[in-house]
């Protein structure tokens, strides 16, 4: 009897552990499918025109997305310029203030803000910048992306600064450095690699965002880079083309998606490289 019981337990063990393997395979299936579809459907439409030409009107073959590429670049750069100083500053604040009740509140709100739906962020910026300017614009799009960026980078910066060994900080203070000099001159450089990684991951994430741009940057079929004009972006164009009825546009949407994924991949590989950066090991 004991034998049959232990046989049952052995089988339960085997079956359940196998099931965890099955779950893992099931999860990897969509990833493989998505990547392979991107490769096959996307690579066909990628050529020089894709990177240099404006979108062609409906019905015409060819055309490119140079406006969307430029748009994404400008939106992300401007969002970084607007959001990163605040985010890194707030992150340092949190790392320095640690357990003060107000710092706990700020930390909590930053975590909660990370969960705000991106479409709500877009609508907030519409109700703020777009209503105020009276038009969709590059500025509005960048602000929307910056609002998403800030809580993300704040928390990663805080974590990275906190990882710096206390001895290093105390070393600076014991030498008679002021606190700001200790932080900016010793602590931040020691955490540089980690902070940069956090920033890159966040930039990669916002460069793929569509929802916050729908009612802020809005999209634009022409090349544009002025602050107060609507501007296109890669994700916006993918969305517009994907829900369009034209096969040619679908092809371009796949190509744009491939480029977008490649961008994200390059950045995440770059962060891996950064993590191995010897400077990061203090």
């Amino acid at each position: 009897m004991a034998d049959s019981l232990s046989r049952r337990r052995r089988w339960t063990n085997r079956i359940m552990l196998t099931l965890t393997g099955v779950a893992s395979v099931l999860i990897l299936v969509p990833l493989t499918l998505i990547l392979s579809y991107l490769m096959t459907a996307g690579s066909g439409a990628i050529n020089i025109d894709f990177f240099t030409q404006l979108p062609a009107p409906v019905g015409e073959e060819g055309g490119g997305m140079v406006n969307a590429l430029v748009g994404t670049l400008f939106l992300v750069l401007l969002a970084g310029a607007l959001g990163l100083p605040i985010a890194v500053g707030a992150g340092i604040y949190l790392a320095e203030a640690r357990k003060s009740p107000f710092a706990n509140l700020v930390r909590f709100i930053a975590d909660v803000m990370n969960g705000i739906p991106s479409i709500v962020t877009g609508i907030f910026v519409w109700a703020w910048i777009v209503l105020w300017m009276g038009r969709f614009s590059l500025l509005a799009g960048s602000v929307a992306l910056a609002v998403m960026l800030i809580p993300m980078v704040t928390r990663t910066t805080e974590e990275m600064v906190r990882l710096v060994p206390r001895e290093l900080r105390e070393g600076g203070i014991a030498l008679g450095f002021t606190r700001w000099r200790t932080t900016l001159g010793i602590v931040i450089p020691a955490a540089r690699g980690g902070i940069l990684t956090g920033i890159l991951v966040a930039l990669a994430r916002i460069s793929g965002e569509t929802a916050p741009l729908l009612f802020t940057a809005f999209g634009n079929p022409f090349m544009e880079w002025r602050l107060n004009e609507p501007i296109s972006a890669l994700p916006l164009l993918i969305y517009q083309y994907a829900i369009s009825p034209y096969d040619e546009w679908h092809r371009l949407a796949w190509a744009a998606a491939l480029v977008l994924i490649a961008l994200v991949l390059v950045i995440s590989l770059l962060t891996r490289f950064l993590i191995k950066d010897p400077h990061r090991e203090r």
């Binding site: 991107l38 990669a204 994700p235 829900i243 679908h250 998606a257």
Partner: peptide, 14 residues
């Protein structure tokens, strides 16, 4: 890391 809109694209066509 895959953007939401790319999931949507794959969703529509596959």
């Amino acid at each position: 890391a895959i953007p939401s809109v790319v999931y949507g694209l794959w969703g529509i066509f596959v």
